[in-house]
Design a protein around this nucleic acid. Structure first.
Length: 883
RNA sequence: GGGCGGUUAGCUCAGUUGGUUAGAGCGCUACGUUGACAUCGUAGAGGUCAUUGGUUCGAAUCCAUUACCGCCCA
């Protein structure tokens, strides 16, 4: 006979099942399957990454859907993989080289790339190993990497196609330049840090009014070498007379116009702003509107160039000091004030970003944004929570062109060649035939330029006729769900929608779930510097993987942050233990019953208990369906938790203990029924807690060695078995039981088992109900004698009592003296009831209420009133008796 | 500066179309080794639903206002 060991050894179980699942390719998706399809592509983690708690949440969410759908009869395809993470991977290797005093320039590009590939082969698989530990049901045979041949082909195809459509172009723009990594960064790779700086007030002499000065305020005086105007607000009365006049820029002695632009904030600084279109994004915009010249004052190393005269060759911070000194000398520095502002820092290298005018490749996004905007607003793609549609719309309606070139070596090198003689441009997926006469553009593409193709490139899309016969694409595109963090809605989600519509003529996914951000217990963001980010692997080893998975989902409400502390994993661990022990109890009983001849297997029909638990089970199934459909994952886990812990363990199993004794001849049927219910429960929790459920499922019954719970049928909702009347009748039973327990505790009889209780019923309809539950009430409430009566006991002053709607409980007392505490409680109960009654009476005497409220509401209010009146009467009686 | 959220028990949060004496988990208090479970059981205490005003017979729920917090964009 099967039994569950006293303790669940999750470490052993996890290793065992993880390997079996993968070795047997349990989660391999078959595109030829006749089943309906369900697919997800994993948000590819950074190949340099290690698993953090956010990954656990996101991948558990996807796993829940995949496992749920798989058990519900779908052919599920969940594609895993990683992205090549241009900057961070390259930096990893550069750091290694730096240890021996070398840089990438000590190697050829090919040699350096070889080193990165070596690094990738050695360390790049860590995060996928960690995902294996999480138990994700991905199809490992379909693992992809954004620098794979296939995916690289897709990237080239798209670049060339967009180039030929005129949507990819080379342009001069202010870009965010990282002087350390020597590359352009996208806005999203920049973080802002508050810095204490100085605000310098510099006097620019007016040409038309010699001796008069216009004072500008700036944090970056060294950029004045690139000034091409001074701007004031047209409404600013102080400066109106200077508009369209000219000033002399100190040090370079350039004569520039004073322009009027509403962009200038009158209250900031002096209200006069120096305009440096070559080195400031906002100035660039202002400059473009006023046709100002853009002057680049930096060289390739971010040092000042010859325009800066004798400051040529100094870096930014040195030249700032020197510029200020010089201004002081010639008396044009009015003052310097302390000033705190946000400075852009490169997320990876931590260098201060330098806005720089340079040649970069861009994608024109306007045209692709239109259909993408439509797809979301017409509901072809649904966002959860829905409010992200607004965020998406706002961004898409104001979309800017996408700077896709990066000055790196690791990545997809741009498929553009320049003719060595003519400078002619060649753009194809393959190099020109006379390659020796051409030079390929040295830049690589932004990593996102491969990620945005992920939902179809992973299935082998290669922009050819073959795509029509690609059975993976046909079966699994569009995918069903994308689960991701909201912070990459623009970086990734929006762009995938655009590329999907452009190249597949269909949306890449139907639902997008933006999961919670995980913070620490104090609500702070997880960060390396704070050291407040628990290592999920440690937590998994300590509490069990299922425990962590369950806890995170349980704590993650739709659209809110999760505040997570390692200790909270106890919630999941305790739940796992509870389920394990319930099963242990059932199997122990089964083996006891089967080995003892006093029990047999007579047929037994469903009683109210069975009806109630079936009703609860189906109610739970319905909740699961609705909650998963609506992406309320934490409510899905709450439904499970409540049903299993409160209904199944606290009541059903407690009753079962008694029921078997009362029905020895049917005991085998009764325990089998309980176990089959338990098996359903195990299936219900499988999507959230795969390991424990798999382990238990195999212990429940022999002969399952070659099977897996992953492919068993998910319990099917039967609405006919939802019986609200059974559930509410059972609630009354529970009320009576807790009422008696409560009376016992209040009268210090908590431990006593042989007490006597009388239940007075008000209507004969109740007697049948009481007869059914009599034995269970006695057992669960822990009393010796139970009587039912339609009369109040004659010697009622030797009883403590409690009032319910329709019932009154009398607990026999040996010592009828109530202590003061007890009497005060009754009095305060009475006071509450009287207050409640008066509010009901007020409501029911309000003509407006009677006229306007619905019949139903009025009836229920009247019912409440009569119930309350009855309780008050009884309570007064009790108090009168005891005083 | 613009936009989007949030404010309910000590903590974290439910409360889906307005009608509950406002719920859960954790924590806290008391009691408890009754056939699985002390990673447990039983019972209990704890809230003027951020402010002010409005709509309504009726507001935690709808509208407006203020305050504070968070996120995104500039």
């Amino acid at each position: 006979m099967n039994e569950l060991p006293a303790k669940y050894n999750f470490i052993e179980a996890e290793i065992k099942w993880r390997h079996i699942w993968e070795d047997k390719e349990v989660y391999k998706a078959n595109p030829q399957s006749k089943k309906p399809k369900y697919s997800i592509v994993i948000p590819p983690p950074n190949v340099t990454g290690i698993l953090h708690i956010g990954h656990i949440l996101n991948n558990t969410i996807q796993d829940i859907y995949c496992r749920w759908k798989r058990m519900s009869g779908f052919e599920v395809c969940w594609v895993p993989g990683t992205d090549h993470a241009g900057i961070s991977t390259q930096m990893m290797v550069e750091k290694e080289l730096a240890k021996s005093g070398k840089t990438k320039y000590d190697y050829s590009r090919e040699e350096f790339l070889k080193k990165i590939w070596e690094w990738k082969e050695k360390h790049g698989g860590i995060i996928l190993e960690q995902l294996r530990k999480l138990g994700v049901s991905v199809d490992w045979t379909k693992e992809r990497f954004t620098l794979d041949d296939g995916l690289s082909k897709a990237v080239k195809e798209v670049f060339v196609d967009l180039y030929k459509k005129g949507l990819v172009y080379k342009g001069k723009r202010i870009i965010n330049y990282d002087p350390v990594s020597k590359t352009a960064l996208s806005d999203d790779e920049i973080v802002y840090r508050e810095e204490k700086d100085k605000l310098y007030f510099i006097k620019y002499e007016l040409i038309e009014f010699p001796g008069e000065y216009l004072t500008v305020a700036t944090t970056r005086p060294e950029t004045m070498f690139g000034d091409t105007a001074v701007a004031v607000n047209p409404e600013d009365n102080r400066y109106k007379k200077y508009i369209n006049k000219q000033v002399r820029v100190p040090l370079v002695n350039r004569i520039v116009p004073v322009i009027a632009d509403k962009y200038v904030d009158i209250s900031f600084g002096t209200g006069a702003l120096k305009i440096t279109p070559g080195h400031d994004v906002n100035d660039y915009e202002v400059g473009a509107n006023h046709n100002l010249e853009q002057i680049n004052i930096l060289d390739g190393n971010c040092n000042l160039n010859e325009i800066a005269g004798d400051l040529c060759g100094f870096d930014i911070s040195t030249s700032r000091i020197k510029t200020v000194e010089k201004l002081k000398e010639i008396g044009l520095l009015l003052k310097a004030e302390d000033y705190t502002h946000n400075v852009g820092i490169a997320d990876r290298s931590r260098a201060v970003i330098e806005p720089l005018l340079s040649d970069q490749w861009f994608v024109n996004m306007k045209k692709m944004a239109e259909p993408a905007l439509k797809a979301v607003n017409k509901g072809k793609i649904k966002f959860h929570p829905e409010r992200y549609v607004k965020v998406y719309n706002h961004w898409m309606e104001n979309i800017r062109d996408w700077c896709i070139s990066r000055q790196l070596w690791w990545g997809h090198q741009i498929p553009i060649w320049y003719n060595n003689l003519t400078g002619e441009i060649y753009c194809e997926t393959t190099p020109p035939a006379d390659a020796e006469n051409w030079t390929q553009d040295p830049d690589v593409l932004d990593t996102w330029f491969s990620s945005w193709l992920w939902p179809f490139s992973v299935f082998g899309w290669d922009n050819s006729e073959d795509d029509k016969n690609n059975e993976l694409l046909k079966a699994f595109y569009p995918t069903d769900l994308l689960s991701t963090a909201a912070d990459i809605i623009f970086l990734w989600v929006a762009r995938m929608i655009m590329s999907g519509l452009e190249y597949m003529k269909d949306v890449p996914f139907k639902d997008v779930y933006f999961h919670s951000i995980i913070r620490d217990g104090k609500g702070r963001k997880m960060s390396k510097t704070l050291g407040n980010s628990p290592d999920p692997l440690v937590v998994m080893d300590k509490y069990g993987t299922d425990a962590l998975r369950f806890t995170l989902i349980y704590l993650a409400p739709l659209g809110n942050d999760v505040l997570f502390d390692e200790e909270k994993t106890e919630i999941g661990r305790n739940f796992v233990t509870k389920i394990w022990n319930a099963g242990r109890f059932l199997l122990m009983n089964k083996s006891k019953i089967e080995s003892d001849t006093k029990y047999s297997d007579n047929e037994v029909s469903n009683d109210i208990i069975d009806e109630w638990i079936e009703s609860r089970l189906n109610t739970t199934l319905k909740e699961i369906e609705i909650n998963l459909r609506d992406f309320r994952l934490n409510e899905y886990t709450k439904s499970l938790y409540n049903f299993i812990w409160n209904d199944f363990c606290d009541w059903y199993i407690e009753i079962l203990k008694n029921k078997i004794d009362l029905n020895e001849k049917s005991a085998i049927n009764i325990i089998d029924r309980a176990i089959s219910l338990y098996e359903k429960i195990i299936k219900l929790v499988h999507p959230a807690m795969p390991y424990m459920s798999e382990e238990i499922w195999h212990l429940i019954k022999d002969g399952r060695e070659d099977l897996t719970i992953s492919n068993q049928e998910f319990p099917i909702l039967n609405e006919n078995q939802i019986k609200p009347e059974s559930e509410s009748e059972f609630e009354i039973f529970k009320e009576l039981v807790t009422g008696i327990r409560n009376l016992k505790t209040d009268n210090n009889l908590g431990k006593k088992k042989d007490v006597k209780v009388i239940i007075k019923y008000n209507s004969d309809l109740k007697i049948n109900f009481l007869n059914i539950f009599e034995a269970y009430i006695k057992k669960l409430a822990g009393i010796g004698e139970l009587k039912f009566s339609s009369e109040v006991p004659d010697d009622k002053d030797s009883y403590a009592s409690k009032i319910f709607t329709g019932f009154e409980l009398f607990l026999h007392l040996e010592n009828v003296e109530l202590d003061e505490k007890q009497i005060n409680k009754y009095i305060s109960d009475l006071k509450n009831l009287e207050n409640y009654l008066s509010s009901l009476e007020k409501k029911l005497s309000n003509q407006n209420f009677l006229q306007k409220a619905s019949e139903q509401v009025i009836t229920s209010e009247k019912q409440k009133k009569s119930d309350t009146l009855e309780k008050i009467e009884k309570l007064k009686e009790i108090i009168g008796l005891r005083k």
